[in-house]
Design a protein around this nucleic acid. Structure first.
Lengths: 113, 113
DNA sequence: TGGACGTGCAACCCTGCAGTTGCTTTTCGA
DNA sequence: TCGAAAAGCAACTGCAGGGTTGCACGTCCA
């Protein structure tokens, strides 16, 4: 595979990221972490319409996709955003858009001949 | 929220896009459309490990998220990529990354005082 | 005009997973 | 040291949605 992050490998990496973000509660979680900075689980759960346990599960999914990571602080567990996963997904979208344009150009030339 | 596409409105739009891309079959479908250009349903189904009907459902989900659109041509229905949806998702990711950096800077200054 | 091809529609099965409840463990502070 | 706060663990429920099968409908062409 010599095609960069839009190939099979990049797809395999971007998949879990999109899957993680493709859920309203998790997307809201990411947005909240982004807006208000690193927070504990209970803090994230207050004001949310789901249970603390649900939040915990979602955070682990996000962590699995490389979107967040946690730091223990006393009896608390502080979660904060991880931009690496976001960059991964963005790069994939970039590549797809670019290659799509190239494909259209190729088809256009092919038709014109 | 008057902050552009990273706000609640942008989140509401980006959600379906991520949800659509957050499924292996659909992600592969997008990649395939990107690499080989516009194709009919049966063409997309051949070589895939799922049924034509499954492909059809996935295409409708992608269309709902503004990622693909279809054109009838005789008895065929040709599907092609729609970069608008991709751009939408990319803008959301951009905003999140940027605002996250700003948040970290704010927190840093707050701690240093 | 009839058969082959491409697609649409509807009912159905079943797995994954979001969400909850109840309990235990760990840590802080008075 | 003891109660409260924060989080972890495990079992359970319910439903959305991915996938299939079967059949009907339009379209092309020999």
């Amino acid at each position: 595979m010599s095609r960069g992050s839009a190939g099979a490998a990049g797809l395999a990496r971007a998949g879990p990221v999109f899957a993680a973000l493709g859920e309203e509660t998790r997307l809201a979680l990411v947005a909240r972490l982004c807006a208000r900075g690193p927070q504990s689980i209970t803090r994230l759960a207050t004001g949310s319409d789901v249970t603390r346990q649900a939040i915990t599960k979602h955070l682990h999914v996000l962590a699995g996709a490389g979107l967040v990571h946690d730091v223990r602080r006393g009896r608390e567990r502080i979660w904060e955003l991880d931009t690496d996963g976001l960059d991964q997904a963005r790069r994939w979208l970039d590549q797809i858009s670019k290659r799509w344009d190239e494909t259209l150009d190729r088809l256009k030339k092919f038709v014109e001949d």
